[in-house]
Amino acid sequence: MRSVIDIVDLTAAEIDGLIATAEDIIANPAKYSEKCRGKKLATLFFEPSTRTRLSFEAAMYELGGNVLGFASADSSSATKGETVPDTVRVVGCYADIIAMRHPKEGAPLAASMYSPVPIINAGDGGHSHPTQTLADLLTIKREKGRLSDLTVGFCGDLKFGRTVHSLVKALLRYEGIKLVFISPDELRVPDYIRDELESAGADWLETASLEQAMPELDILYMTRVQKERFFNEADYIRLKDSYILTADKMALGKSDMCVLHPLPRVNEIPMEIDEDSRACYFKQVKNGKYMRMALILKLLEVE
């Protein structure tokens, strides 16, 4: 039995395999529509989510399986003081696989130590979000045709942006990757990610200027400054509008650049940018469902 808590729990070869499965699902959806008949996915979302929870649920339904779960901690026994290990030991009696989102970092790992069924980390605080990374990688592969030899810019909240941390770790395993981190001083990538960058001998730089970074980027990964990660609202208000991707800034980018965003957005990407052919964030949403389907099949060991 395997869980996926961190993107590096999957080897690069396994990620290639998931991408191949996802592309086959896109091409032949009917072939997969009964694969999980009789199986149940539990979505344990201790923190609100629209995309990720519905994506997991849609993924399981499209595989012919069923879904149970809760959408906020308020509607779970967490309000009665139940621990994460107890919750998953109980839910593991009802479901074949669990997707868990939790505001505390490491909660899905703690769950995987006690769960009788596989756990998928659906986002833990500001820490990591491996299935978003799977969505990102499939999108990059489909849009650029490769996962190597790319200059990838990350912009916005790089400190608490769990999708950034997971994608960085995944990209470090491919050749010819250059990473450009664009953020205000207060929201720079955390020390442990710097540590990973140094250990991997990565090609990376930090800047506060999106305009300066724009011309060399193949991928621009925008993020939202997340109100829920701040202990102090004044800091949030001061930093929330740090980067807004206007049409003027888009004009500085390559014609085949690809703009990604894990969504939800607030105002960092105005709606006018949606019309630009380089805006790929809604394709990313769809790709997320296919990669989650591929991952569920793998962890349930369904042929």
Binding site: T83, V84, P85, H102, P103, K104, E105, G106, A107, L109, A110, D124, G125, G126, H127, F231
Partner: peptide, 13 residues
């Protein structure tokens, strides 16, 4: 010491 870590709210871990 990270207040966002699961060990901060579930001390039995």
């Amino acid at each position: 010491k990270n207040p966002r870590c699961i060990t901060s709210s579930e001390p039995e871990l």
